[in-house]
Design a protein around this nucleic acid. Structure first.
Lengths: 133, 133
DNA sequence: GTTGACATTAACATCATGGGAAGGTTAAAC
DNA sequence: GTTTAACCTTCCCATGATGTTAATGTCAAC
């Protein structure tokens, strides 16, 4: 199976498949005489694993760790859960940061006339003047 | 005022002050005979504006637009509000994406024993097998 | 054997920020 | 007046995951 086919089957772009190889996330692929990469059903499964992990927002480093645990039949599920829980905490922190931004902006927007006049609490806030309260 | 002082006063790193100049967000700074950049109180105010806008998550492009509106005394507050509302929508979309990830992961983590045993619904999910429901 | 589809590598872009190196300037202490 | 420390300058590289483009080479079907 060449890289185009592997890309279709796994849902990972050819570009990213090469990238995963370059950063050592996947083993170097076997090649045809002409230099084309060759993939097996097993490789597709790995690529699907990576894709799903990316969909859940895991970083490449975490995915490397998860792949290692996946391949190790003597893993402890506690180790897997620890990685996942860490990621949940990361996500939560990012969500809170974004929500704090959104709340602040929502406040400002609510107090902005939004018409032809120039005075605007949003600009006032950015300029360091708190005008609307 | 040199760049170090401007950095302290504005809370923007010297590195970023130079960067904002390089990308055209700030006008080219005047220089001493020795080539050092010189900043005025007005420049500091602009830098603080940028910093606050970054804290609220605006992109450089949006900040460029906001700076333009800030400087234009004949602006319409509606234009400012439009930029802000767009950003709120962006934030909301990003939040929802992260929350969806968090919810999925939370599900998986809740069903993982998290002990010495190897079987783990998190890995099963990543591998494309849905084991816990 | 030609041709069209696909592969290869490499370089560059994104976005905002940081790190470091090699060298020049300033200002204060002596 | 010189030394020295702190600061500044530019330039290059790195992040993280992904995309784009370009120049060139291979495969497979006809």
């Amino acid at each position: 199976m060449n890289i185009g086919r592997a890309s279709q089957e796994s849902g990972v772009s050819a570009k990213m498949i090469r990238h995963y190889e370059a950063i050592g996330l996947m083993a170097r692929a076997r090649r045809t005489d002409g230099g084309y990469r060759i993939y097996s059903a097993n490789d597709i499964h790995t690529l699907q694993f990576i894709r799903r992990a990316r969909e859940l927002g895991f970083s490449m480093k975490q995915i490397e760790r998860l792949l290692g645990l996946w391949r190790n039949r003597r893993r402890a599920s506690a180790d897997v859960r620890r990685v996942a829980q860490q990621h949940i905490d990361d996500l939560q922190a990012r969500i809170e940061k974004l929500e704090s931004m959104r709340r602040s902006l929502q406040q400002l927007v609510q107090h902005c006339h939004g018409d032809d006049r120039p005075d605007c609490p949003i600009l006032d806030d950015l300029a360091g003047e708190v005008s609307w309260q």
